[in-house]
Design a binder for these strands. Structure first.
Lengths: 138, 138
DNA sequence: TTGCGTGCAAAGGTTTTGCATGGCA
DNA sequence: TGCCATGCAAAACCTTTGCACGCAA
């Protein structure tokens, strides 16, 4: 594997911003705008390529909420293992919830045993409506 | 509400095909190709507009699996409760499995009761590796 | 020096929109 | 007849790709 072994200035800037955002999910547009506004403009294609590599390496998580707004990215903090976490994303306000719950392992076990499918929790996100956005609609 | 009250030939053809597809998920491209091949070509924008209205009315469900391949649509058959509907997408071969299982309602109940979050099953997809792609390797 | 990373531009694909025309009620 | 629906083309939008140059090791 020779991909993404170089420590370039751009990679560093991108990772810094991703870490700074913490659990917040950000779009490529936001990344580009931030870097430009901070005097470090980066080519869009470079951002996409770096993000792709980081996703592949497991450093960053990619979310797709709807086709219109594009994908969102989030830095994965190594200190918090997200394997036992639910990822709940509200389709209304866009908030991403991290919920630590042992019930997730039951889901994994069930789907593995009954449906022969190995869930990848780092890629799976539950979409729905959070409490504060109210359940009156739908 | 004055939207989509007209019973046009195009709307009828679209609904007929959606019903014919049953629980299968189809893309706009597939709809367009089918209608063209059956001697009833329909403008792409009309298909999008009709589908949007049908989704809004709750007649059709829209799935967004990943940004690349575009959205999928599925007719909602009132007779068959789609409450117990898993969506498993293999990250390796890309196959989308949709399996009926009552366990899904347990997941919904758990997350609603313990985490105050209303899961939208039509938007939630479990990512992972299917059996034929070998579940041990990531 | 070697080869990956970058950036620009162009291409690719999906979805939306403007506007004139056609069709339902 | 009054609108809404349609369809074509163009635009908008996100993302990828080709290619030459720059830079890390």
């Amino acid at each position: 594997m020779k991909k993404n072994n170089y420590n370039t200035k751009q990679k560093e800037l991108l990772l810094n911003y991703l870490r700074e955002c913490g659990e917040n999910h950000i779009t490529v547009q936001e990344i580009s705008a931030y870097l430009t506004n901070n005097g470090n403009p980066m080519g869009i294609s470079t951002i996409y390529r770096q993000l792709d590599r980081l996703v592949e390496q497991g450093t960053v998580r990619k979310y797709i909420l709807d086709g219109r707004s594009g994908a969102c990215y989030q830095y994965i903090n190594e200190e918090k293992t997200c394997n036992s976490h639910f990822h709940l994303k509200c389709v209304n306000c866009g908030t991403l919830f991290h919920v630590d719950c042992s019930f997730l392992s039951e889901i994994d076990s069930h789907i593995m045993e009954h449906h022969r499918f190995a869930i990848d929790n780092s890629k799976t996100v539950f979409y729905g409506v959070c409490e504060s956005c109210g359940g009156e609609c739908q």
